[in-house]
């Protein structure tokens, strides 16, 4: 597309000056305190690069005005996060807003997509919550579970990967794009959906496989820890079927036996029936692997894994 005017470029000095203004404004948003904005000072590395005229202009509106974008930005995050993790926000109660403020003080979001901010916040917050004795030990599980459901709701259906219907042991499996998996220590999925601060979930290690059905409803399948470990290797790790079973079983300290193979076969068959498992990749198998299908046909007893 031709320009109708000659193109002029900014100088290096132009960009340095502009960057200093932008970094200063962003640091104002990150300030821990909503007070003392008059202290826009030469001590600050970003402020130090400010042109004196720009510093004077920023301060002209008064110290209270310097905090306005801090307040607007954080109000947006507080509202948006509450809409994506409402039960977690409810459990945090009066601690909720201070947690979001702490996230803004230390980190700030990185994704340009607003709905990603809740994922960034929870990834940042859950290690803090895990060591905070004043919070319920299952709060991190609850936040991750809420996001897992939300993520499943938003997942793009289908796949770009070419698939074949057979499931040889030496190939990764291909799942529908809506499939997600999480592993939890508490049965937070059993909590009433009413943000009640008094509810307590059972302590129970388990996995949760989620997908979206053709009617766009999110469906959940509760898995045992060993099944969750194997399914995580398949879905998230993208490992070949045999590798996923071997690694997942070992990670849970289990013996790889017929019961494990039978159990995972039942799960995979169920997922295929539901349309969540689409097949395996059509790349040619490397040498040295027995066919998964031969293992499956050799054993027929469903297990409880």
């Amino acid at each position: 597309m031709p320009w109708s005017v000659p193109v002029r470029e900014p100088s290096a000095d132009d960009l340095t000056r502009l960057a200093a203004v932008q970094r200063t404004l962003q640091r104002l948003v990150m300030r821990a305190s909503d007070q003392d904005f008059g202290g826009l000072s030469l001590d600050d590395a970003a402020d130090a690069e400010l042109h004196e005229a720009d510093r004077t202009a920023l301060l002209e509106g008064g110290s209270a005005r310097l905090g306005i974008y801090r307040r607007l930005v954080r109000a947006t995050f507080i509202d948006t996060l509450r809409s994506e993790v409402p039960m977690t926000a409810g459990q945090l109660g009066a601690r909720y807003a201070p947690e979001v403020h702490a996230f803004c003080n230390e980190e700030l979001p990185r994704s340009p997509v607003l709905r990603d901010v809740a994922f960034e916040f929870v990834a940042w917050a859950t290690p803090r919550w895990a060591t905070d004795a004043s919070l319920r030990p299952w709060l991190g599980d609850l936040a991750r579970f809420e996001l897992l459901e939300f993520d499943t709701h938003c997942g793009v259906r289908g796949t770009d990967v070419k698939t074949v219907a057979e499931l040889p042991a030496d190939r990764p499996l291909v799942f529908d794009g809506t499939c997600r998996i999480g592993r939890f220590d508490y049965a937070v999925h059993e909590l009433p959906d009413d943000e009640s601060p008094l509810s307590e979930p059972r302590a129970e290690r388990h996995g949760m496989f989620l997908y979206r059905d053709p009617g766009n409803r999110v469906r959940r399948i509760v898995l045992t820890p060993v099944a969750a470990a194997i399914m995580t290797e398949l879905l998230v790790g993208g490992r070949a079927l045999a590798d996923a079973v071997r690694i997942g079983t070992a990670a849970e300290g289990c013996t790889l036996n017929t019961a494990v193979i039978e159990g995972i076969s039942v799960i995979l068959e169920d997922l295929a029936t539901r349309g969540a498992l689409l097949g395996s990749t059509d790349s040619p198998p490397p040498r040295g692997h027995a066919l998964w299908t031969s293992l499956v046909t050799a054993t027929r007893v469903p297990s409880g894994i």
Partner: peptide
């Protein structure tokens, strides 16, 4: 800036350099 996203609309300095 610097990899952070504020999800708000912050003003630019009204300078020739910012225009370019």
């Amino acid at each position: 800036v610097d990899g952070r996203s504020l999800h708000d609309l912050l003003p630019l300095p009204q300078t020739d350099g910012a225009v370019l």
